[in-house]
Simulated scan of single mutants.
Amino acid sequence: MKNFILILFLFTALLSNAQDKKQTEKTKIVEASCGQCKFGMKASGCDLAVRIDGKAYFVEGTKLDDHGDAHAHDGFCSTIRKAEIAGEIVGDRFKATSFKLLPTTK
């Protein structure tokens, strides 16, 4: 029983630490669009990408179609949008833990 309580306590502490890390992760505003259509990246088909400090990265953790019709007048294959993101660059990809598409301005 003592081992079970100890394991439960450790699991709860680890889970709490993970939640704290996610909440304190910094967000930034970046350009988001179709990597192939708007950022000139090489790959087959259309894939979501973000441009951070002038360099484009394909995104893992969310996809084009999670944010509406990519081929609509305001879609990712038609225009470059702003997004508030959190995550990290790993190799040549951006691993998103948060991705919020910002409203378009006229």
Rank of each mutant, 00 (worst) to 15 (best):
L6C: 10
L8K: 00
F9K: 03
L10P: 09
F11P: 00
L15E: 07
N17E: 03
N17V: 07
N17H: 03
N17W: 06
A18D: 03
Q19D: 11
K22P: 02
T24A: 07
I29V: 13
A32H: 02
S33E: 11
S33D: 14
C37F: 01
K38H: 07
F39E: 00
K42S: 08
G45T: 10
G45M: 10
C46V: 03
D47V: 07
L48H: 01
A49V: 04
A49H: 04
V50E: 01
R51L: 02
I52V: 07
D53M: 00
D53F: 01
G54I: 07
K55R: 06
K55V: 13
A56P: 02
A56H: 01
V59E: 04
V59Q: 03
V59T: 03
G61Q: 13
T62G: 08
T62K: 09
T62N: 09
L64I: 12
D66I: 05
A72K: 13
A72D: 11
F76Q: 05
F76K: 10
C77Q: 07
S78A: 15
I80V: 15
R81D: 05
R81S: 14
A83E: 08
E84A: 02
I85A: 01
A86K: 14
E88N: 12
E88G: 05
I89R: 00
G91W: 09
G91V: 15
D92N: 15
D92G: 09
F94S: 05
T97C: 04
T97K: 05
F99V: 13
F99D: 12
